[in-house]
Amino acid sequence: MVCGFMKGFCEVVMGQEYGSSSKGEFRAVVSSNRQIGISFYRLTLEFSGAGAEAFDGFGPGQFVQLDVSGAALPPVERIPDELADAARREILLRRPFSFTDVTREGDKTVADLLYCVVGPATLRMTTFKAGDSVSVVGPLGNGFSVPEGKKKAFLVFGGMGTAPMQHLAKVLAWDEKERDIEVVAFAGAKSVHALPFEGRMDEISQQLGFSIREFAKYTIESMVATDDGSSGFHGPVTDCFLEWLKENKPSVEEAIIYSCGPEAMLGKVAEIAKERNIDCQVSLERRMACGIGVCQSCAVECRVEGSSETVYKMCCEDGPVFDAREVVF
């Protein structure tokens, strides 16, 4: 359960939780590894047998630990200058990723993973090709939950924070269809080139609309915000969201905010949620070695109910999704 801190509260409004299958180490086969824009890729993995069963129950916001240590480097001419030094590094530890989509296809489970080339591991991942076999540890952690009584869900995210949000969008639109939850997505990035979506992101208006294909396919409207104004709203995504809230004044009890992205952005979202008393779940990121609660490296400072003291919870096992009120930002 993601909201141990709000225990009494959660008992009242306990809703749908996702991600119940037990974890393990599985092999997946790469079915495609497609480039999106300048530095984003969408990796599609196929699980069969026990892996298909385990990942069929993968909930939005959960994550996996991928072993990329065996992946080759791209040819020298395809290594960006800024990663030339990083490319020399050997990979030892697994890397954590969430999935953007998980689909059961017959006796297989197909999962999509979105990544941005930022270091030695993601650089190597670009050389994964169809047919390659990859070791995946998962499903790990606690994902997002959908409390009862919610009618409006706001997805507020920055940069690669979009990854679990796309999966959550699908669950809200399809699995929770009968609850008829209205979903609005707010996507932020530094500039148009840092928006990890397909299509012409430079032609996006400042209005709410079906501008991001990845959300539009679930009939979810979205707004884009860039720090430099090169696409959509000019400014941080949290300002964009705040303006929208002020104009639209949604019912607080029926609303929930889901957020993923840089820690500073999450802190701001948590503040907005707290001021308005809107429920808010945030997905955090930490450096982690194991991802299974053993190494204790991914500590998240959390408040203790009725005390000024704080405790460290583990991002991998207690999170990565936390109730925003619990986290010390």
């Binding site: 030892l92 450096r287 490296s297 500590a299 405790v311």
Partner: peptide, 10 residues
């Protein structure tokens, strides 16, 4: 409680 983060680096 343990140390503040980051606690590890590869």
């Amino acid at each position: 409680k343990g140390n503040a983060t980051p606690r590890i680096v590869e």
